[in-house]
Each structure stands twice: as C-alpha cells, then as structure tokens.
C-alpha cells in the first residue's frame, strides 16, 4: 500500500495480500456485511462473520456491545489480543469500516481493511467457500470501551456546531439538502426532518473510492478533502451519515489514509439529529 501514499499504509491490505495469508494463524479475516446472509452464500476461505446487528450492537439500547460481550465475541471467533484482524464486506466496505471502528473502541489496533472489499475479491475470481471455519476459543482481554476518542455524541455535536468546528456530512447531496431523508432509491423513512447539521460540508463517502471499490490514492484524497473542501489534519472533525456506517468509511479515510489525528464518527447520525426535538437544521 506504500505506493498509494497513505499515512498509515499498514491499515489497508490488498486482495492479493489476503490471498497470501489465508492460512496464516496470526491473521483472522472477518466479513461484515449489510446483507446478513452474503457470508452464507460464500466467503473468503477461513473468514469468520461478524454482523453489525447481531454481534456489535447492544440487544436493547441503541449502543454497542459491552467489554464483556466484546471479549466473548473475540473468544468465539478465535481472535486473540495479538491477532491481525482483516475486515472486508459488501457495499464498498461500509460495514467492514464500521466493524473496524467498533474494534478501535475496544483498542484492537492490529486491524486492517481489505481494499476493494467483497466486490473486488469476487471480480478477481478469487475462491469463495460455504464452509464455516472453527477456531479454538481464545482468552481475550479488552479495556473498557473508549467512546471519547473516536465517537461523537449529540451534545458534543451541538457544541461542535456552536464552536463552528468542521462537520462532514457523507450522505448523498439529496439527503444533505433534505430533498431525501435516506439514500436515493431507498424508502424515505427513518427521520422526521430532512436537511443537514448546520455548517456541515457535504462530501459523499463515495468520493473516496474508485469504481472498483478500492480507496483512491492519498494525493487524490487530499485534492478532495483538503484542496477542494478545505479540511486539514489539525482540525477536530466529526463525520456523520444516517446511522453511522457510511461515516465510518469516511472516518477511516481521514484517520488512516490521510493521517488526521482527531476525527470522530457520530453514529447517532441523521436518524438521531433529524428526529431530535429543537435541534437546529440547515435546509436550503
């Protein structure tokens, strides 16, 4: 990945790298998808499945799993504290980046994203299997979830607005303007109001990827986020979308590909802000 000029090239691996590490006991490949049964239709040999609903979310509250549940999940998937975890998935790695982000809440820094995701693996004709692997359980020790580092809550977002600090709305332009409250061609439900958080710049997540789903080079990304949109690494940035998956993608791009040290994902996103009584909204 060095040729792409990323600030943290170690956070991204190619499909070829993954193919070369299918039997590496220190590597665990994790598929995370929007479509919960894609894994069952065929996955990278040796990959385990982690579902954002069933595995990463709290079953009752709108929140993430607890430290104890994360430790249990890691143990079940055969992941140790020193295992290199490689994420991939559908939808241009939205949920792979989301899972990567949740892993960072628990400090599992030895993690990578497979560039191009499931789509690229398939397009290259690489092997899939329906065989579900079984790994010995591990003893995993996680710290308490560190929400303050890379996760933003609505009160913090409100303060961010008041302080005129940069917000990045990664949704489509029509969602940003309030013409739609969900992605195009998706049913228009989920929030009572349309528009965007005051002051947010609209930089759709998809601008960071090539047609084959791979990330653009650092130079191309800087041209978009810095030269065109005026962001810079010294800023404290919050990204959001509808429920936090597309913005995890942009969070990953800014943090690992461009090396911005202070980027947070507002996972409450528009489903929270667009339903929040009295919250300020910009709508042209």
């Amino acid at each position: 990945m060095n040729e792409k000029g990323y600030a943290h090239p170690e956070a991204v691996v190619t499909t070829a790298w993954v193919a070369d590490h299918l039997n590496d006991p220190n590597v665990r490949i994790v598929e995370s998808d929007e479509d919960v049964l894609l894994y069952e239709q065929g996955h990278i040999p040796g990959a385990v499945k982690i579902d954002w609903v069933g595995d990463l979310n709290d079953r009752v509250r709108r929140d993430y799993l607890s430290r104890a549940d994360f430790e249990r999940l890691m143990s079940e998937k055969g992941i140790s504290n020193d295992t290199t975890v490689v994420f991939y998935g559908d939808k241009n790695n939205w949920w792979a980046c989301y899972a990567f982000w949740v892993f960072q809440l628990f400090g599992h820094t030895n993690a990578k994203v497979m560039d191009g995701g499931r789509q690229k693996w398939l397009e290259e004709g690489r092997p899939l299997t329906r065989e579900v692997p079984s790994y010995p359980r591990t003893t995993y020790r996680a710290p308490e979830r560190a929400d303050y580092k890379i996760r933003a809550f609505r009160d913090q977002v409100m303060q961010h607005v008041l302080n005129r600090q940069p917000l990045v709305d990664v949704r489509s332009p029509a969602e940003y303007t309030g013409e739609l409250i969900h992605m195009e061609n998706y049913p228009q439900e989920g929030a009572l109001r349309g528009g965007h958080i005051p002051g947010a710049k609209n930089i759709p997540w998809g601008r960071a990827v090539n047609p084959d789903g791979t990330f653009k080079t650092a130079e191309e990304l800087r041209a978009i986020y810095e030269q065109e949109q005026g962001l810079s690494p010294d800023q404290n940035i919050i990204a959001y979308c509808r429920i936090g998956e597309r913005s995890s993608h942009t969070w990953f791009v800014l943090t690992y590909l461009l090396g911005y040290p202070s980027v947070r994902n507002y996972d409450g996103s528009w489903t929270e802000w667009g339903n929040l009584v009295g919250a300020p909204i910009e709508k042209p």
Partner: peptide, 9 residues
C-alpha cells in the same frame, strides 16, 4: 413496500 434498514424494496 420498503425497509430503510437495508434498502429493501
């Protein structure tokens, strides 16, 4: 009918 969670139609 539609479901915004997955974009199902």
């Amino acid at each position: 009918g539609g479901n915004p969670g997955c974009g199902d139609i």
